[in-house]
Each structure stands twice: as C-alpha cells, then as structure tokens.
C-alpha cells in the first residue's frame, strides 16, 4: 500500500519536474532570434549568382555549403536577401568591401568584370569562376564543364535527330530540305563558353559529313537582362510561322523550360525537336514524356564542392588548379524516366 502510494507520489513529482524543466528550456530558447543556435566558422566565402537559373544555382550552392561546413568555412549566397537587386558586379564590389575570405562567381569577359576581379584578387581575396569563366582575369580557378565537349555532346544528339529525320523522310519519300538547327544563346553572356559550344556543335556536324545543304546551324540571341524577357523571346520563335527550327538547342535551364512550355502551348511537340540543359524535375519530366529529345546536365554537387575545395586550397597553399572540370551527363528519355522515379 505504502509502496503504491510512494510510486504515485514519485511519478507526480517527476512529471512536475519534467514540466518545469521543459518549459524553462522552451522559454530560454524563445525570443532569442539571431542569437539562436548557430555555428561559427573560420572562413567566410560568398557565392554570387544571378537570379536566373535559381534552381540550378540552388543546387550548386547547397553542395558548396555542405562542403564548406565540412572544411570549417561558411558559404554565403551574397546579396540574396537584400531589399535591392544589385548587379553581379556591384555585389562583387560589395563583397570585396565587406572583406570576405573568398568569392565564387560565374564570370564573363566584360572589361568591368575583369577589372573588378583584378581589384578583388589584388586585395588578397581569392576568386573562383564557376560555370562561366573570365579568362582575361586573374581569378584563381575556373570550375565548370568543358564547353567544347558540351558542344560535341549536343552535336551528337543533333546527328541522332537528323538520322531519325532522314529515316522518316525516307519512308515518306519527301524532298530533302536542309535541317534547321537553332541554338538559343544568352545575349548577355560575354564569356566564350557559348562560342565554344557552338564550335563544338558545328565541328561535330561537319566531321560527321553534314554540310550547309543538309543542316544549318543558327543562333537566336535571347535577352536575359530584363525580367521575363527570355520567355517572351523564346515564344516569339514559335510564333514566327514558317520559320520554325527543326531542332532547338537550349543552353540554360530557364531557356529549356520556356522552350518546352511554348512547344506544348503552341502544339509544336514533335515538330520542333528540342535538346535541353539541366536536370530539374520539370525538365526530366519533359524528357521522359519526349517533349524534349534529351538534356545535358552538369554535376551540380561536384561543381559546388570543387569551388570550395579550390578556395580552400588557395587559402592554405597559395596555389590552386587553374581549371577544374565538372562532369556532364546526357539524359535521354529512358534515363529521365528512371531518374524521375528515383526522385
């Protein structure tokens, strides 16, 4: 009897103490806001990207942050939460003035950019160009894919498409017109990567024996400078009746999404064969449904990781590789279906 009463008493006491301790802890955590749980790091790197292709850059950033945390460095998405949308070069300057420990930024060949990068490096802040290179600058490293190789990949896909087209024409017995390949290029991109891609495509086609009679490779500049302008420019292509390309090559995730959405909206799926870029869920879905013929994806995880590794290497040794290659992956319809299921 006494034992039972003691147990009840003890349980009540324990419950009470538990409640009190729980609420004490809870209220101690409350209202702390910025002083809440956080960790300190030795180095402060920043990553500056444009607002376009946010999905792609988000994945690169996640990988960079994860790698940084392992190495005692925190990677900040600089300027992201600011009330004003600054140009990349302004953000670069600000990062320099804020005395960060390292900068990851997609480069270009603009003089202004090269000058700013020069200033930054001179201030002792290492810079890694990611995806796009500023070859004229004294940045420490470029982390990205080999654009020429990428062009070759696209070229091979175009050849596949041309072969299928020829087979179809053969069975139809129709006249053979030169196939029209339209590559969407970013008007604002001043780096050489797009040119190298185009070169890769053209040389691959030529090497395969295609000439101007059988295939024409054209570019269509898309203006990214204003908000939503790229989407409008791509829709314009579909609206120009009679001038529809046979094959549309997209070199960015945004262009890819705009293009396949426009193809669906204007009922041009199958009429315009499209080659995409990047492997977001939506793009994979489109590939698996054969709206896109294929897509080429960069290994974003590797890209983010290599950026931080390059910065750390430079911080520790004063040297780093000038170029670090990121793997690309060609995703066809079958693979896309598998990937969609996996995710």
């Amino acid at each position: 009897m006494i034992r039972k009463r003691t147990i009840v008493f003890a349980v009540e006491l324990a419950f009470l103490l538990g409640c009190l301790i729980f609420f004490w802890q809870r209220f101690r955590e409350l209202g702390r806001g910025e002083e809440g749980s956080y960790e300190l790091y030795d180095r402060h790197y920043v990553m500056i990207t444009g607002r376009e292709d946010s999905d792609f850059w988000d994945r690169v950033y996640e990988s960079a942050v994860a790698e940084g945390k392992k190495r005692g460095a925190y990677v900040e998405r600089f300027g992201e939460d600011l009330a004003v949308e600054y140009r990349r070069n302004d953000l670069l300057k600000m990062a320099m003035q804020a005395s960060v420990d390292g900068i990851i930024v997609p480069g270009d060949e603009e003089e202004e950019t090269i000058a700013i990068l020069q200033d930054i490096v001179e201030q002792g802040i290492p810079v890694v160009n990611v995806l796009q290179d500023s070859t004229g600058s004294i940045r420490q490293c470029f982390v990205g894919n080999n654009s020429y190789n990428l062009g070759q990949d696209y070229g091979n896909q175009i050849l596949n498409l041309l072969a299928e087209r020829e087979n179809a024409a053969g069975t139809d017995g129709g006249t053979k017109e030169p196939a029209r390949v339209l590559v969407l290029v970013d008007e604002n991109r001043t780096d050489t990567s797009q040119n190298l891609i185009l070169l890769g495509i053209r040389e691959t086609l030529e090497n395969a024996g295609e000439n101007a009679d059988s295939v024409s490779v054209e570019t269509s500049p898309v203006d990214n400078s204003r908000g939503f302008s790229s989407e409008e420019a791509i829709r314009d292509i579909f609206l120009k009746a009679g001038k529809l390309p046979d094959i549309l090559v997209c070199l960015s995730a945004v262009h890819t999404r705009c293009a396949y959405q426009a193809a669906v909206d204007y009922n041009k799926v199958g009429i315009v064969q499209m080659l995409g870029y990047y492997d977001s869920d939506a793009i994979l879905e489109a590939v698996s449904k054969n709206i896109l013929y294929s897509t080429i994806a960069l290994d974003t995880e590797q890209m983010g990781r290599l950026c931080v590794q390059a910065l750390d290497e430079y911080m520790e040794t004063g040297y780093t590789n000038n170029y670090m290659a990121v793997d690309t992956q060609l995703i066809t319809s079958e693979e896309a279906g598998r990937l969609v299921q996996e995710r």
Partner: peptide
Amino acid sequence: TQATDNKMLLTEKNIRGL
C-alpha cells in the same frame, strides 16, 4: 565579426566590413 551560418549575424559581419 565572425563567420557563422546564421544569416542575420553574417549580414552584420558584412555591414561591419562594408
């Protein structure tokens, strides 16, 4: 003044640097 994964504190660091 320290590098941290807290965004607001990091912004403080940036403000200080700027």
